[in-house]
Design a protein around this nucleic acid. Sequence first.
DNA 1: ATTTTTTTTTAGATTCGCCTAAAATTTATC
DNA 2: GATAAATTTTAGGCGAATCTAAAAAAAAAT
Lengths: 224, 224
Amino acid sequence: MKYSTSKENYIKAIYHLEQEDPVVSTNALARQLATKPASVTDMLKKLNEQELIHYEPYKGVKLTDSGNKLALQIIRKHRLWEFFLVEKLGFGWEEVHEIAEELEHISSKKLIDRLDEFLGKPKTDPHGDPIPDAAGIVPKIEKRCLLDLPIGVSADLISVSNQSADMLDLLRHHQIEIGTRLKITNRFRFDHSLQITVQGGPPVTISEQLAAHLYVAWAKDETD
Amino acid sequence: MKYSTSKENYIKAIYHLEQEDPVVSTNALARQLATKPASVTDMLKKLNEQELIHYEPYKGVKLTDSGNKLALQIIRKHRLWEFFLVEKLGFGWEEVHEIAEELEHISSKKLIDRLDEFLGKPKTDPHGDPIPDAAGIVPKIEKRCLLDLPIGVSADLISVSNQSADMLDLLRHHQIEIGTRLKITNRFRFDHSLQITVQGGPPVTISEQLAAHLYVAWAKDETD
DNA sequence: ATTTTTTTTTAGATTCGCCTAAAATTTATC
DNA sequence: GATAAATTTTAGGCGAATCTAAAAAAAAAT
């Protein structure tokens, strides 16, 4: 089934608001979508008829199972496109949201699955939010310091707790950026250094001082 | 200025029909856009008011300068996305048109210029059609047999005059596909072989027999 | 040069997503 | 528990883009 851009935006907004409060109000939706409550009511009636939401007048709204599934598809697209924009086209984290708002409505499922593949099936977007997989499953992310990463487990870099020029310089030197896949292959207690692989490349050595500022995420049950 | 998807589609359709006949009829447009002549008339009035077209009732339509410029921007986007889909995501030539019809309406100019850069500023799309540059200039393409390419001139592979499995196998081996940038670095008359570079990589040798089936395009005044 | 045919435009209606203003309902307050 | 305040819905309208049916204009045929 294909839905209008407007309907997709409603579904996405309801999904996000449900995280705060399981029952979403007309007013909250109007605020989120920068529209008027009367317009929201109109749309809720349509979404209800299409069984994307459970809606009863004056009683707020919830996503149905199919509404939830749709929301996750849209969020998947949004976050994969954001990853693409930052990782492949060199956009800054701040400027990608607006563009991804447009790209998330491109309909082809095959496109998004191939993009996912092309990007290396990333688990999180550049802001550190998890990317649902093709089946709509949201990976459970453990965002922790790189120092806490068990040896042999792959993880994606989510955030850096030091944005100084020196730090960025160092990261560039190691070819590490947000989204880069890291794996610890060895730990050396003598000089507080770590041996890691970057994007599956050859092992390199970094200091624990650097690693202490790198926050990574990995799938709960990932064993590779 | 930002225009609706529908308006952009009209402008693009008028541009393409102008290539056949400098004055475009209402009926021709209706056919092209799979809509009704009455709908076309309505839209032409609006486009005329926005000065994207010259339109007088019963007298057909032409693009204005700004209409032409807009058409070229849309076509640029369409062809760059097609290139991306084939080259980076591995889509077949046939399946990309429909997806690019959606992607061409994404508005960000910065996005498309970065994409252009990321793709290596290709001169033609996977079908061999020229890609207008950021200024709207359409490169003049000389599509000729690779054997006719002067030594030292870079050219993009446009089409292959033999689609057999053996040929595709050979191309895959040499990592050559549609859009790949080729340059002849040497010719050996003794065994009818050519030394070429593929995407700026190290020189490799191919047979004239293979080269005879490869059709390439290069910018008229390109000297690199 | 009429008449016929084709093309194009006008007129009036429909759907979608939004609006404002007013009415209905729920929630909060005294 | 009655009343005031906030929320939500209904009613009626608007612009964009489309449609059908009918009228007007241009082109083709006799």
